[in-house]
Amino acid sequence: MEDTLGVVIPDPKTDYHGHLNYGKIYVWLLILFAVSLTSAFLFSHVAAIATVFVIAIIQAGLIARNFMHLKFEPVLIWIIAIAAVFCLVMFLYGMYIDITPVTREIAK
């Protein structure tokens, strides 16, 4: 469908292509969750933490892309999502050196 602006009006039925297998994604989420729970026993401390956070990012991506249908959204929504992440990365980058390496004796 198009209106006079030439804007394609979204229709939910065609919009989501209707055939996503949500059950499969749910199973994947559970598997990843199980891996992150068991990783603490399998790997060393640092490796386990790294695994857990990588898995968290993958899980968040799965939910955002499939359950929230981000993968069908136009570029505008991607820009909003990326801008939020960019702001947080900048924030972490600017703050890290003022908080973490400063021992409490100096901070006092």
Partner: peptide, 26 residues
């Protein structure tokens, strides 16, 4: 007439709210 794909306004506003919430929790 540039061809763009519109997002229904409710969903558009919600994406912005979600981005805002992410920055708060972030």
């Amino acid at each position: 007439f540039v061809k763009i794909r519109a997002v229904p306004q409710g969903r558009l506003a919600l994406w912005m709210l979600i981005a805002g919430e992410f920055v708060i929790f972030g």
